[in-house]
Design a protein around this nucleic acid. Structure first.
Lengths: 131, 131
DNA sequence: CTCCATCGTTTACACATGTAAACGACTACG
DNA sequence: CGTAGTCGTTTACATGTGTAAACGATGGAG
């Protein structure tokens, strides 16, 4: 290999707790720390300081942008949810199914994780893909 | 020994590095630490001690069983790969797609992660599911 | 203008993980 | 029999993560 001195940006993985915060902001943005807390603290059993830490880490990881609003900040996602979802899905498919989607699908089907509705939707998608 | 208020077993997550070791043993078991190293150390840039640590941790997590073979141990998976794959897939689907498989599929399709072959295979699976 | 509520930031700490050296036991070759 | 190589185990240490208190700045109420 040639040069591994400096990659422009190591993607900097988003952890699971951080992801929960991102979800809130993907649902609606911008929002303040308190807004976010109002939406996850109860469900997760977190306190406001915890959310603040997560927000700060996400800003460091450049997953969020901030905008001043008086004394406080408003946070917005700096990446599309679809991108995140894409990377994560790919990672799983690579790690567990040799990068091929069909085996994943087979597994989900076998595990009865597919409802009739799912099957119908997928059939529709396939039809679209072939056209 | 009454363990009334004890969770049956906290599943004890298998980390990514540990997973690589599991894969080797799922492919063939039982194997010694050296055997395992021979199959992953080069690819991962690990040294034998690293593999030993991972094996030990996996034994602690009850993901592997051991069997003596003279001076050394032979390791075998204590859980089926399908189970691991199932849990991990479910986790992802829950976390990113609200527990429904169709959106995952849609995403993979959209991201062009599906080859024609994949599509054909999935169609076949669907046909089977409906019968 | 002063004081308090509220921000974001700094610091903290325990546990998981990645990575590996050090150590003590045991076996097999000489 | 001794000793060298090989085991598994113990210890180590940096970084990431979950969770949060402490702290210092600051803007708004009186």
């Amino acid at each position: 290999m040639a040069d591994a001195s400096e990659k422009p940006d190591t993607p900097d993985r988003i952890s699971e707790a951080e992801h929960a915060v991102m979800e809130v902001l993907w649902r609606e943005a911008p929002q303040s720390a308190q807004d976010v807390c109002a939406q996850v603290c109860e469900a997760k059993g977190w306190s406001l300081p915890t959310v603040k830490t997560l927000l700060a880490r996400l800003v460091t990881k450049q997953a969020l942008t901030t905008e001043r609003d008086g004394k406080r900040f408003l946070y917005s996602p700096a990446m599309a949810r679809a991108d995140y979802v894409g990377t994560e899905s790919r990672r799983l498919v690579d790690r567990l199914f040799g990068g091929r989607a069909a085996p994943l699908f087979a597994h989900l089907a076998q595990a009865e994780a597919l409802s009739d509705k799912d099957i119908a939707e997928i059939e529709a998608l396939l039809k679209e893909l072939k056209s």
